[in-house]
C-alpha cells in the first residue's frame, strides 16, 4: 500500500514545530505502525534528512513508551498501543496524521517524543508501599478475596503510556493516577498508606499541571489496557474519605 504521512516535526522543546508531509510506498499491511515509521526513517536517512524521532522500547505492548496520536485518536484506530497497531487497519492511499501527546505536563522533547516524567513524579509521591523487601512471602499468608485481587490486577496493568492524558479534553492525568490508587487500595499491603497515598498523588497530579477530570470518559475509551472509568470514582471516594476523616481526628 501507499501511504501519505503528515508528521509533527519539532527540533527540540523550545522551538516551534510544524506538520511535514511524506509519501511512503510499498507498505505491507502486516507491518506494525512503528515498522512503517522505521521504513520512513530509513528512507529519510538515505536522503540525508533527519529521521523522525519517536519513542519505543518493547514493541510488544507492555512498556508504554510508544504512544502517538494517529488521526486524532491516541494510539490510533484500534484500542491498543501504537506498536501493536498494524497497517492493515488502514487502506491504500490513506493520509495519516501523526502527532505527539499534547499537554503542558508532557512537553515535546523532539518530534513525536514527549517527556512523561510527570507520571514518574506522581508515582514517587505515593504510588508504592513501604514494605521491607526480602524473600517472597508465602502466597497464602495474606488471603485476598478473588474479586479484589482481580480488580487490583486489572488496575495494575496500566503501563503509564499517557494515552489517557492525550485523549482527555482537559488533559487530565486522573485515569493513570486512579489506576495506581485502585491497584494498591484493593490489597491488604496497600492499606496502611491508603489515605496518605491518595492525597499526595492527587496533589502531585495537580502540581504537574494536568487538568481536572470531568468524567468525560475519553481516557477509558482509548486506554490500551482497558483501565475502567470507575477507578476514578474510587479515587474520588478515597480522597473524600481521607479529607473528611482528617476533620474528625
Amino acid at each position: 500500500m501507499n501511504i501519505t504521512l503528515r508528521v509533527w516535526r519539532q527540533k527540540s522543546r523550545d522551538v516551534e514545530g510544524r506538520m511535514v508531509t511524506y509519501e511512503i510506498e510499498d507498505v505491507s499491511p502486516d507491518m506494525s505502525f512503528l515498522e512503517m515509521l522505521d521504513v520512513l526513517n530509513e528512507k529519510l536517512t538515505l536522503q540525508g534528512e533527519e529521521p523522525v524521532a519517536f519513542d519505543h522500547d518493547c514493541r510488544e505492548g507492555i512498556c508504554g513508551a510508544c504512544g502517538v496520536v494517529i488521526d486524532g485518536v491516541a494510539h490510533g484506530p484500534e484500542t491498543t498501543t501504537t506498536c501493536q497497531l498494524h497497517m492493515r487497519s488502514f487502506s491504500d492511499g490513506d493520509v495519516i496524521t501523526v502527532e505527539p501527546w499534547r499537554a503542558t505536563a508532557f512537553p515535546v522533547v523532539k518530534d513525536l517524543v514527549v517527556d512523561r516524567g510527570a507520571f514518574d513524579r506522581i508515582i514517587q509521591a505515593g504510588g508504592y508501599i513501604s514494605a521491607p523487601t526480602g524473600t517472597a512471602p508465602d502466597a497464602h499468608a495474606m488471603p485476598v478475596p478473588k474479586s479484589d485481587a482481580d480488580r487490583a490486577f486489572d488496575a495494575a496493568t496500566c503501563i503509564g503510556c499517557g494515552a489517557c492524558v492525550a485523549a482527555c479534553p482537559n488533559a487530565s492525568g486522573m485515569l493513570f493516577t486512579a489506576a495506581k490508587v485502585t491497584h494498591l487500595g484493593m490489597l491488604p499491603q496497600g492499606q496502611p498508606e491508603r489515605e496518605a497515598r491518595v492525597v499526595k498523588m492527587v496533589n502531585q497530579h495537580d502540581e504537574e499541571e494536568f487538568g481536572g477530570c470531568t468524567n468525560i470518559g475519553e481516557c477509558a475509551a482509548v486506554c490500551p489496557k482497558g483501565i475502567p472509568l470507575d477507578t476514578i470514582s474510587q479515587l474520588n471516594r478515597d480522597l473524600l474519605g481521607s479529607l473528611t476523616s482528617a476533620s474528625s481526628e
Binding site: 496520536v69 488521526d71 485518536v73 499541571e209 481536572g212 470518559g217 475519553e218 475509551a221
Partner: peptide
C-alpha cells in the same frame, strides 16, 4: 476547572486532527 484545563493544554498546543473515541451523542 475550565481555567485549569486551558492551562493543561493551551490553544497553541491544540491537535491538528481531533476525533472522539466515544459515541457522538454522549
Amino acid at each position: 476547572l475550565w481555567a485549569r484545563a486551558k492551562h493543561a493544554r493551551p490553544a497553541a498546543q491544540r491537535y491538528v486532527v481531533r476525533k472522539s473515541a466515544q459515541s457522538p451523542s454522549r
